[in-house]
Design a binder for these strands. Structure first.
Length: 119
DNA sequence: AGAATGACAGGAA
DNA sequence: GTTCCTGCCATTC
């Protein structure tokens, strides 16, 4: 009682904390979208908040490179420093990046469904 | 307070 | 498959 109040108690996580957690949960080699991260964090419609948090969280060691636009395209201007860095990091995880774009999985689509029902 | 901006999304064309 | 256009949300001018 007293002890649990002193620690972190039940302070509801802030929107930012939930989003950061959702970002950390994105598996290697399985990129997702800003909007999907927001939904998983329980904040539908706040894709732009996800983007803003990433932009301001340099040094937080987040897998920022796994977050793309809903259409699978890299969000940075083509050819920019960050763009190239993102391509290379994704490829390093085995992701097929073609022309600055990847194939995103649907929300309920798991990795093995993608493996066993490729298209 | 109103306008502009941004690592966006989804549907229309 | 595209690109284009409008809506969104939060912050900054």
């Amino acid at each position: 009682m007293l002890t649990r109040m002193m620690k972190s108690a039940d302070t509801p996580l802030t929107a930012e904390q939930r989003i950061v957690a959702a970002i950390r949960a994105v598996p290697r080699g399985q990129p997702t979208s800003y909007g999907a991260v927001a939904r998983r964090a329980g904040l539908p419609g706040r894709a732009r908040l996800v983007a803003r948090i990433l932009a301001h969280s340099e040094g937080a060691h987040l897998p920022w490179h796994r977050i793309l636009r809903s259409d699978g395209r890299i969000a940075f201007p083509e050819g920019s420093e960050a763009y190239l860095e993102q391509c290379q990091r994704l490829r390093a995880e085995g992701v097929d990046v073609r022309n600055g774009r990847v194939r995103l999985l649907q929300d309920e689509e798991s990795l093995d469904s993608a493996v066993w029902a490729p298209r």
